[in-house]
Amino acid sequence: MRKWFVVFLAVVGTGGAATAGTVEELAQTCTACHGDSRQLPTDPAFPIIAGQQFYYLYVQLRDFASGLRQNEIMQGIVAGMDKATMQAVAQYWSEQPWPTTAFPGPTAEERERAERVIASGQCSACHLGGFEGNSRVPRLRNQQPGYLEKIMLDFKFKRRMNAPDMSALFTDVAEADITALAHYLAGL
């Protein structure tokens, strides 16, 4: 199934849709901020996308395009991008290795806080053991701690609304717990 997109792009991808070549060119646009398999994103609040789950990436691009997820930069980038291109870009990044990271782990107190939140929210039921994610559920393991913290705060304060149940889950999670969880997940 994964090969399908490559074939599709090679055969059908004409007339404005992405071609196999332009996918890599588009990917360079992403690299400027998100880094790649060899380098981390330029800003601690930007997510690693190399090695992220395909369907999760595609849905985010789709949601940026529809306005369901708000981000000025990303909405500008996806403007005019068709479904096939979004899928091709998502496919490309999902097939790249996750970069090597060395984020410091949580303190002992943070670990305790994080594990309490994880148990309470039953997080592994969706993000799975090791927090590698699957398909529409994103990998959190070794993600940038700054990004993880920002996104969980966005959920808590209803700034990110394209995953309503994450917003509900974080509504009453303390900010200190969110910081602890971000450090925990980044340092796994």
Binding site: G121, Q122, R136, N162, P164, D165, S167, A168, L169
Partner: peptide
């Protein structure tokens, strides 16, 4: 927490939380 149908995403309409 009432939210509209999110088109195939998780849709619990809130959250269950284990009391740690």
């Amino acid at each position: 927490e009432s939210t509209p149908y999110p088109g195939g995403k998780l849709w619990l309409g809130g959250a269950f939380k284990v009391i740690p």
